[in-house]
């Protein structure tokens, strides 16, 4: 997939073409990921989460964020990784999608990075399908690589499962 045929509506992709863009970086396992900072609603510490019985495994439950009900997603589970032990300290990134809030539970949240479009590259063809499924490409950082998450696709697992 090349950059030119990306859906233009996604803010993150516009930035890819337009130039520098800020990303909130976070870790899942030993890989760093990024979400455009404008799409991030909140960053939360550990929360009290109400489990939702019978929900897909990716859904950790729901939580109350200042009076709004937020659906919590286990990012590890979505990416096919084993969950962290129950007592592990996790962080959450709250994003809005389709008028609803979702909280992505990640291992840790790092700093906000300003990244140049020239450092962006689409995925190497050998990239794992689950990553290609939720992301369009990678930024080359000085010492590591950062995968840009596409929030709508990241949250689209229910349909992906049903299909």
């Amino acid at each position: 997939m090349t950059n030119s045929n990306l859906p233009a509506a996604v803010v993150g992709n516009l930035a890819v073409v337009a130039g520098a863009q800020q990303y909130v970086s976070f870790m899942i396992g030993d890989q760093s990921f990024g979400i455009p900072v404008l799409q991030v609603h909140d960053v939360l510490g550990p929360q009290r989460i109400t489990r939702i019985p019978l929900s897909p495994p990716e859904i950790a439950g729901s939580l109350n964020l200042r009076g709004r009900i937020v659906t919590a997603i286990q990012a590890r589970c979505r990416l096919g990784l084993d969950p962290l032990p129950a007592d592990a300290e996790t962080m959450s990134i709250v994003v809005e999608h389709g008028g609803e809030l979702y909280s992505l539970i990640v291992d840790s949240v790092g700093e906000v990075l300003t990244l140049e479009a020239r450092d962006f590259e689409s995925h190497p063809p050998t990239m794992a399908p689950v990553i290609r499924d939720v992301s369009n490409g990678i930024y080359r950082l000085n010492d590591s690589l950062l995968i840009v998450l596409e929030v709508p696709r990241f949250l689209d697992f229910v349909r992906a499962e049903a299909a």
Partner: peptide, 23 residues
């Protein structure tokens, strides 16, 4: 949330007086 609409056992959710979410 739309992601959970297929669960027919729940008609909705809400926040209780103590601030927790309940199905």
């Amino acid at each position: 949330a739309p992601i959970l609409r297929h669960l027919s056992l729940f008609s909705g959710n809400t926040i209780l007086g103590d601030g927790r979410v309940i199905m």
